[in-house]
Simulated assay, not measured.
Amino acid sequence: MENTNYGDTVNLDESINGHSFTYGWLLDSLRKNDKIYQKLHGNRGVKAISACDVSGGKGFFSAIHRCIITFTDSNKNSDTDYYSTILKIPGFTSFQEAQSQSDIPKELLDKSIKEKCENMHKFECNFYNGISQILDAPVPIVYKTVEWILEKQEGCIHMEDLTLRAKTISFFDNINLTHVKFFIQCLTKMHKNILFVNPKVWKGKFVQGQNCYVDFFDMYESGYETFLKRNKNYGNFFGTLKFDLLFKFSKKILN
Rank of each mutant, 00 (worst) to 15 (best):
L26P: 07
I113K: 08
F60K: 03
Q101Y: 02
E115N: 12
N126D: 12
G57A: 07
V10F: 07
L135T: 02
D34A: 00
G24I: 04
F127H: 08
I104D: 06
D81I: 05
T72P: 02
G57E: 00
S78V: 09
G18S: 00
Y37K: 11
I64E: 05
D34E: 13
K111C: 03
N33Y: 08
W25P: 10
E107F: 15
H121I: 03
W25C: 02
E107D: 15
A63P: 04
S20M: 12
Y37E: 07
C67E: 06
H19G: 06
N77G: 10
H41M: 02
G56T: 13
E107L: 15
K106M: 11
G45A: 05
S20D: 15
I16R: 09
G91N: 13
N17W: 09
D110Y: 04
D79P: 01
S102C: 10
F71V: 08
N77S: 08
G56I: 11
G45P: 01
G56C: 11
K111S: 14
E118L: 00
W25A: 03
T72Y: 02
D79H: 08
G57D: 00
W25M: 11
I86M: 08
L109D: 06
Q101C: 11
I134D: 07
G24S: 07
S102R: 06
L26Y: 05
R44D: 08
L40Q: 14
T9A: 02
L108D: 04
D13I: 15
P90L: 03
N33R: 08
T85R: 00
I113G: 09
C67R: 01
K114G: 08
S84T: 12
Y128H: 03
C117L: 13
S62E: 00
T70F: 10
V10Q: 07
T80G: 10
C125D: 11
L108V: 02
L27A: 00
K122R: 14
E97V: 13
L30T: 06
Y37A: 01
M120R: 00
E124F: 04
S15N: 05
F21M: 04
Q38M: 09
Y83C: 01
R31A: 11
A48L: 06
N43I: 11
A98M: 12
D110S: 09
Q38Y: 10
G18V: 06
I104V: 10
K106T: 13
I89W: 02
K106Y: 07
L40G: 01
Q133I: 14
F127E: 03
Y82S: 15
E118M: 13
D53V: 06
K35S: 14
S74N: 15
I64P: 03
I68V: 15
N17V: 14
L30W: 02
C117A: 07
D28A: 14
I104Y: 02
S50V: 13
N126L: 09
G59I: 06
F127Q: 10
C67A: 13
Q101F: 11
I113Q: 11
V54A: 07
V10L: 05
D13E: 14
D13T: 15
K47L: 11
A51G: 03
E14V: 09
S62M: 01
H41F: 03
T9F: 01
Y37C: 03
P90Y: 10
N11F: 05
G42I: 04
L108C: 08
S74E: 14
S84N: 10
L109M: 15
H65W: 07
S100Q: 12
D73F: 06
L87A: 09
G59N: 15
L26E: 03
